[in-house]
């Protein structure tokens, strides 16, 4: 079978001497971003271990467990401040003093994600928030936010590089890490996302853009047309999915799979992008939730009804006729005709 690697014993590569230490901390997370990261092809996970970074702590795959794992974090703070890259995956819950996410034990007491991120984040060389949850809050901070979750930036008073995605595309994360390690901080946009990956909307890069322009729309999932009418969030979403595609082999992406983009990299995901199969998000006012379509329909109905009732009232009370009678008191032929009509109508009443 054509497996390229695995025949050489795994040991640090030539480039690894300058490799910075890496801490990948899982807070309130599903682990999806780390799993997605494992799907990276070139460079892959093993290239990261061998050449790119000195991977000290990675909650998903590390051998150490229990206090042995937590000690690594403590050592980082004392021996390598300002040197390591901190990657945080997941939201930071604040409810019950952060006890909604515990990452380990310290002196017999639970070490909360809130405390760990604050301590490690302050002394890190770079802080990377991987996944939409860490970057913006994402699904776990969605209404009603049961754990009081916050994104990483909200608990740290320093620059955080956001690499959103639900999950993150392996290339976005690997690319950001490589950039940090080899070329320093990448150019960021106003949401602190690397422009390299989040520089253009999915809509503008979409292979099916010409279907949109020409109004060729899919009516249901599974049809090979533009997904706009079944809620595609491509126009609202900055990511390079159509070009890059998913995963390591770049085989497909949601629209290619005949489904709408749900805007999973967005700061408003999922509340500001849901319902996923509707064009506009819900309108939420205190105590009320209505769909945007319903607001439109109700306003239109109220407008038509209001005008209709007022018009009927004006006719019945004779105000309309009066207004026109007053106006057309001139002597032109056309005016006379109108006058006659109005008079006849008024008499009838």
């Amino acid at each position: 079978m054509p497996i390229r690697i695995g025949t050489e014993p795994l040991r640090p590569g030539k480039l690894s001497r300058s490799a910075p230490p890496l801490i990948w901390l899982g807070t309130n997370t599903c682990g999806g971003d780390a799993v997605s990261f494992l799907n990276s092809l070139d460079p892959g996970y093993l290239d990261l271990l061998r050449d790119l970074a000195d991977c000290r702590y990675l909650y998903l795959t590390m051998t150490a467990e229990g206090d042995m794992a937590t000690r690594i974090l403590d050592e980082m703070l004392t021996t390598l401040p300002g040197k390591y890259i901190l990657v945080v995956e997941g939201t930071i819950p604040t409810r019950s003093n952060g006890l909604y996410s515990v990452v380990g034990m310290r002196n017999g007491e639970p070490l909360t994600a809130l405390q760990a991120v604050r301590e490690l984040g302050t002394k890190a060389r770079y802080v990377v928030a991987v996944g939409t949850c860490a970057a913006f809050g994402g699904p776990f901070a969605a209404m009603p936010n049961p754990s009081g979750s916050l994104p990483v930036q909200a608990v740290l008073d320093r620059q955080v590089i956001n690499v959103p995605g639900c999950p993150v595309n392996p290339d976005w994360m690997m690319g950001t890490l490589v950039h940090l390690i080899r070329f320093g901080e990448p150019e960021l946009d106003s949401f602190n996302r690397p422009k390299l990956f989040y520089g253009e909307t999915i809509h503008n890069l979409c292979q099916r853009r010409h279907y949109f322009d020409n109004s060729l729309f899919a009516k249901q999932p599974g049809e090979p047309w533009c997904m706009y009418q079944i809620g595609c969030k491509g126009p609202d979403t900055f990511a390079d999915c159509p070009y890059r595609q998913w995963n390591g082999e770049h085989l497909s992406w949601p629209v290619k799979a005949n489904t709408p983009c749900i805007g999973c990299v967005n700061p408003e995901f999922p509340d500001g992008n849901a319902p996923f199969f509707e064009h506009l998000p819900d309108v939420r006012l205190p105590g009320v939730r209505v769909t945007a379509d319903r607001v439109g329909a109700l306003t239109a109905a109220a407008t038509v009804l209001g005008i209709g009732v007022h018009l009927a009232g004006s006719i019945l009370t004779g105000r309309l006729a009066h207004a026109f009678k007053q106006t057309f008191s001139g002597s032109g032929a056309r005016t006379r005709l109108l006058q006659n009509l109005i008079q006849r109508f008024s008499k009838k009443r």
Binding site: D236, T237, N266, P267, E268, F269, G272, N273, L280
Partner: peptide, 8 residues
């Protein structure tokens, strides 16, 4: 807060 809310 994002393009979605803006569009709304």
């Amino acid at each position: 807060g994002g393009l979605g809310p803006l569009r709304k």
